[in-house]
């Protein structure tokens, strides 16, 4: 029963959602949005599960003084501080238990939650995102090392696209006559991005789409059961 009920639900719901894709009439046209609403409600309750997991895991490491426990302490303190500030004085338009905290807001310039959000969270988030530039550089260096024909082609293509996207590309081949415009580096870069690149990406998307159809069908028909934890 524990296994067959989810399978029956998956079959019924999957089939109805599939039908609703092709039937614009009520009630089929409302099913997807209704199910999305249900998903949001269940997700809302599940958030509590995540918070419990977070507190339990960190507390366990701090209490047992496991390696690197101060990091977990920092994580828990950050969580507690944001939660407390949010509950007490709210955020932006939403008041908290103690109202809007006019005095503390006047002192900080913002509500405490928003102050920490804008001055701690956002810079940290932006810092991590900006690391991407350095990671791209190191990954590109490895990708473009000439090892064989493929990596050679990759490097040549990448150089054309990189130069074509800068003013240097315009400067280098700007003197080419009208009949040779295709070989103008920015035009060449556009061609690479528009045709070979798009074609390859679409091939991946089409195969992924087929994979989704097959995977969904296996789940709807109950052939694929691994997501429930077991095959039988």
């Amino acid at each position: 029963m524990k296994r067959s009920l989810p399978l029956i639900f998956a079959f019924i719901v999957g089939f109805i959602v599939l039908l609703s894709e092709f039937i614009p009439h009520r009630p089929f046209n409302q099913i997807v949005s209704t199910l999305e609403g249900w998903f949001m409600i269940i997700s809302g309750f599940a958030i509590l599960l995540g918070q419990i997991s977070l507190i339990r895991m960190n507390t366990h490491k701090i209490v047992n003084k496991l390696p690197n426990w101060p990091y977990h302490l920092a994580g828990l303190i950050s969580f507690a501080v944001m939660l407390t500030f949010g509950l007490l004085w709210g955020m932006r338009e939403t008041p908290g238990i103690l109202g809007d905290g006019a005095q503390i807001s006047a002192w900080l310039g913002l509500k405490p939650f928003d102050y920490l959000f804008e001055n701690a969270y956002l810079p940290l988030s932006a810092t991590l995102f900006s690391l991407l530039a350095f990671f791209i550089a190191s990954a590109a260096y490895r990708a473009f090392i000439i090892r064989g024909l493929e990596s050679n082609l990759l490097m040549i293509t990448a150089i054309i696209v990189i130069i074509g996207r800068t003013s240097m590309g315009t400067m280098l081949t700007g003197w080419l006559p009208e009949s040779w415009q295709f070989w103008h580096i920015p035009n060449l870069a556009d061609f690479i991005m528009e045709f070979p690149n798009t074609a390859a990406q679409r091939a991946i998307l089409i195969s992924a789409g087929l994979g989704i159809v097959g995977s969904s069908l296996r789940i709807i028909l109950g052939i694929e059961r691994s997501y429930l934890g077991g095959d039988k």
């Binding site: 998307l205 195969s207 992924a208 994979g211 069908l217 052939i223 095959d231």
Partner: peptide, 20 residues
């Protein structure tokens, strides 16, 4: 792409899933 969705069938070696 598709290999991600085929993985479960491939790993299970279940003839039915491989058929899909």
């Amino acid at each position: 792409g598709e290999e991600l969705f085929a993985a479960s069938a491939y790993l299970s070696k279940d003839p039915q899933q491989l058929g899909s």
